[in-house]
Nucleic acid binder design. Structure first.
Length: 444
RNA sequence: GGACCCUUAGCCAAGCGGUAAGGCACGGGACUGCAACUCCCCCACCGCCGGUUCAAAUCCGGCAGGGUCCUCCA
């Protein structure tokens, strides 16, 4: 399996640090609002990565944090006259509902900054003790100059960064490149520490959590391309300072999602919230339709195409499943022997192994759908149909596009028979009633 | 000012030196009580100009258009 490693800037063969085990961490949301579809891209993508590793038999430990200490949360709390904790827990709930709708697994570790304060403070103290950080009037900064290959992950050199500076220089910092580990403040939620009353900087939370949870280097650290600099660069700097490693063996970054070629942002007013999207799994389909490192552009017409794609998948899945269940021929444990079907699975796997090329994996899925549909209109061969269903389940589980079906009851079966009979008898008004019933049941 | 990326048919999108996958839409067939679903066929010389090569969408250079980032926040 090949993964594009942002740290080395090239495609690398994947080998896990521990056999059959994948430890991965993905930067999670700052919980001060509902998430938009751009926020959903990394969530859906890395959920798919996880699913693929699991399908490959790896034991995956998946961690993604909630940033629940942050200026925006404080602002929101002030605006709505709530506590920061009330704000963050509201949006954590909302986040989990949203991603569940996108069929993302939610059984992962979800550390929160508020629950990690002691550890974060200890982590910062270690940096100070090792002389990688310094305290100026209660603010603690990281001394970037002590890290020799700072900029490696995001591919930039320090001189460019300094000369390219457009922001007023903070006179407290030794160097404009230094970043905040702890900020002294009594505004909003704050904590006591040996440095001052205040709160931690954003860049230090993920690395602290990884340190505590995994106790060492992890396999994969993921997040949006926009986090590469400075956030991930700064995380690496801290890990290098304390542990002399780059946190993760593989760094993965997904491309941004834009809206009609524009950045999706609240100031432009073009935000599409996940909770407002009706066809959630069509959204998942859409998000996986382009390779994860490429930019992805959303607009209603393009999305409508994927709604159609999703429905096509749904139709084929249901028809196949119910055709088999109708005659009690479902066999979910069948072994796939058919060459043609094996071939599609192989194409699917090759695509996923190629740096998670979901676009090509979807092509294999579509090809399988064509095979399914054409077999459904031929004389039914149950072994073949069961093999097709098994293959479909395999792909759809990995992509997280699972279609909901419920096993039929004998009553369902008799309604179906009556429908067939009515059609044969040319009793079309009865047939239409029954068809309506079957459609509502999801069988047609 | 600096760093970097993208440009493939009406639309979405693979491709990474060997002669353009797939999907949607369109058009033509088929299936069908009506409808939906579905099936088959058809549909591009890859932004422009030059270069390298036996061979380029794929490599190099220039031009045009679009986008991202640059020690503030995520």
């Amino acid at each position: 399996m090949k993964i594009f490693n942002s740290y080395s800037n090239q495609l690398e063969e994947f080998t896990s640090l521990k056999e059959n085990q994948v430890n991965m961490y993905v930067c999670g949301p700052t919980v001060y609002n509902y998430i938009h579809i751009g926020n959903a891209r990394p969530v859906v993508f890395f959920d798919t990565v996880r699913r693929f590793f699991e399908a490959r038999g790896y034991q995956v430990t998946f961690v993604s944090n909630f940033t629940d200490v942050d200026d925006k949360i404080i602002q929101k709390a002030l605006d709505e006259n709530l506590s920061e904790l009330e704000v963050s827990s509201k949006y954590i709930q909302a986040f989990l509902i949203d991603i569940e709708g996108l069929n993302c697994k939610t059984d992962y570790l979800k550390p929160k900054v508020t629950e990690y304060m002691d550890f974060i403070i200890g982590f910062i103290q270690d940096l100070i003790d090792k002389n990688y950080a310094y305290n100026v009037d209660g603010d603690v900064y990281f001394r970037v100059s002590k890290i020799d290959d700072y900029g490696r992950l995001s591919n930039r050199n320090i001189d460019d960064l300094i000369s390219g500076s457009r922001i007023d220089i903070n006179p407290k910092k030794e160097s404009p490149l230094d970043f905040t580990l702890w900020k002294q403040t009594e505004v909003g939620i704050n904590f006591s520490s040996p440095f001052s009353q205040g709160r931690p900087g954003w860049h230090t939370e993920c690395v602290s959590m990884i340190d505590d949870i995994f106790k060492g280097q992890i396999d994969i650290h993921g997040g949006g391309m926009d986090l590469q600099f400075p956030h991930h660069e700064n995380e690496i700097a801290q890990a290098k300072a304390l542990h002399n490693h780059s946190i993760a063996k593989y760094w993965m970054h997904n491309g941004r999602l834009s809206f009609k070629e524009e950045k999706m942002s609240k100031s432009i007013g073009n935000v599409v919230l996940v909770k407002d999207v009706e066809e959630k799994l069509a959204l998942r389909f859409f998000l996986l339709s382009t390779h994860y490192r490429s930019p992805l552009n959303y607009d209603e017409e393009v999305f409508a195409m994927y709604v159609k794609e999703w429905q096509k998948l749904e139709n084929a899945y249901k028809t196949l499943f119910y055709k088999l269940d109708l005659v009690k021929e479902l066999d979910l444990n069948i072994e796939i022997k058919d060459i043609e079907i094996k071939n599609e699975i192989n194409n699917f796997d090759l695509a996923m192994e190629d740096d998670f090329n979901t676009a090509n994996a979807i092509t294999a899925l579509q090809s399988l759908l064509r095979l399914i549909n054409s077999n459904l209109r031929k004389k039914l061969v149950f072994t073949k149909l069961n093999e097709l269903l098994k293959a479909l389940n395999y792909m759809v589980d990995i992509l997280g596009l699972k279609v909901e079906v419920t096993p039929l009851t004998d009553e369902d079966r008799s309604v179906y028979e009556s429908w067939q009979k009515a059609r044969n008898d040319k009793d079309f008004s009865l047939a239409d009633d029954l068809r309506e019933k079957l459609t509502r049941r999801g069988m047609l």
